Measured scan of single mutants.
Amino acid sequence: DVEEQIRRLEEVLKKNQPVTWNGTTYTDPNEIKKVIEELRK
């Protein structure tokens, strides 16, 4: 469920934690926001 994935990513973003997505770890909040934007398409 895309909405659920977006919610999880936004939670991690608020906590300033790194996100691992498709084998890539993102630590930059701007990169995480880009992943969220991609999911919304």
Rank of each mutant, 00 (worst) to 15 (best):
R40M: 10
L9G: 01
V19F: 12
L39G: 00
G23Y: 03
I6S: 02
I6D: 01
N22A: 05
E10S: 04
T27I: 05
T25E: 11
R40T: 05
R7Q: 07
E3S: 12
D1E: 11
E3I: 08
I6C: 03
N16S: 07
R8N: 09
W21I: 13
R7I: 10
K14P: 02
E3T: 10
I36V: 04
T24M: 14
E11C: 04
G23E: 03
L9H: 00
N16D: 11
N30S: 11
Y26W: 04
R40H: 05
E38N: 08
P29Y: 09
E37N: 07
Q5A: 12
K15Q: 14
T25R: 03
L13E: 02
Q17T: 10
L39A: 02
K34D: 05
N16M: 11
E4S: 09
N16F: 13
N16K: 08
L13D: 01
R40N: 10
V2I: 15
E10H: 05
L13F: 08
T25D: 04
E10R: 03
P29L: 09
W21L: 11
K33Y: 13
Y26S: 01
N22K: 09
I6M: 04
N16A: 07
K33G: 09
P29G: 06
I32F: 06
E11R: 04
L9P: 00
V2F: 09
G23I: 02
V12G: 15
P29Q: 07
G23A: 03
R7V: 05
L9C: 03
I36M: 05
I6K: 01
V12C: 15
L9V: 02
E11Y: 02
K34W: 11
T24E: 07
E10W: 10
E3Y: 13
L39T: 01
I32P: 00
E4N: 07
Q5K: 07
I36F: 04
N16L: 08
T24G: 04
E4G: 04
N16P: 06
L39V: 03
N22P: 02
V35P: 00
E3H: 10
Q17W: 14
Q5G: 04
I6E: 01
L39H: 02
V12F: 15
T27N: 13
W21P: 01
E10N: 06
G23K: 02
E11T: 07
I36N: 00
K15N: 15
K34F: 06
R40G: 04
L39R: 00
L13R: 03
V2G: 04
W21A: 03
N30P: 02
L9M: 07
P29I: 07
E11I: 06
K15H: 13
V19R: 00
V35L: 15
K41E: 12
E37P: 00
E11V: 05
D28T: 08
Q17V: 12
N22H: 11
W21G: 02
Q17Y: 13
T25Y: 11
P29F: 11
V2L: 09
E31S: 08
E37Y: 04
T24A: 10
E4L: 07
P18G: 08
Q17L: 15
I6L: 06
Q17C: 08
I32D: 00
K14A: 15
Q5V: 14
V12E: 14
K14L: 10
Q5D: 09
K14C: 04
R8D: 08
Q17K: 09
P18M: 11
I6Q: 01
L13S: 05
V12M: 15
R8M: 15
W21Y: 13
R8Y: 15
K41I: 12
E31D: 14
L39E: 01
D1H: 09
R8F: 15
V35Q: 04
N30E: 15
K34Q: 09
Q5M: 14
E10D: 04
V35R: 04
Y26F: 10
E31T: 06
K14F: 07
G23W: 01
E3N: 10
D28F: 03
L39N: 00
G23D: 05
W21E: 01
K14D: 12
L9F: 10
Q17I: 13
K34G: 08
R40L: 10
K15T: 14
V2S: 06
N16H: 12
N16E: 02
E37S: 08
T20L: 12
Q5H: 11
N22T: 02
P29N: 04
Q17R: 06
V12L: 15
E31Y: 05
P29W: 08
N30A: 14
K41A: 14
T27H: 14
Q17N: 07
N30Q: 14
I6H: 01
R8Q: 15
Y26N: 01
R8S: 07
E37M: 06
T24F: 12
V35H: 02
R40D: 02
L9K: 00
G23F: 03
T25M: 11
D1M: 08
K34Y: 08
T27E: 09
I32K: 00
I6N: 00
V35S: 01
N16R: 11
V2W: 15
E10K: 04
E11S: 08
E11W: 04
E10P: 00
V35M: 12
N30Y: 13
K33N: 07
I32E: 00
L9E: 01
N16W: 07
K34I: 06
Y26M: 13
V35A: 04
P18F: 12
D1F: 12
L39I: 06
D28P: 01
I36W: 03
T24C: 05
T27F: 12
V19N: 02
D28E: 11
E38W: 11
K14R: 12
L13G: 02
K15Y: 14
T24K: 07
I32A: 02
E37T: 05
E37L: 08
D28V: 03
L39F: 03
R8L: 14
Y26H: 03
G23M: 02
V2Y: 11
V12P: 03
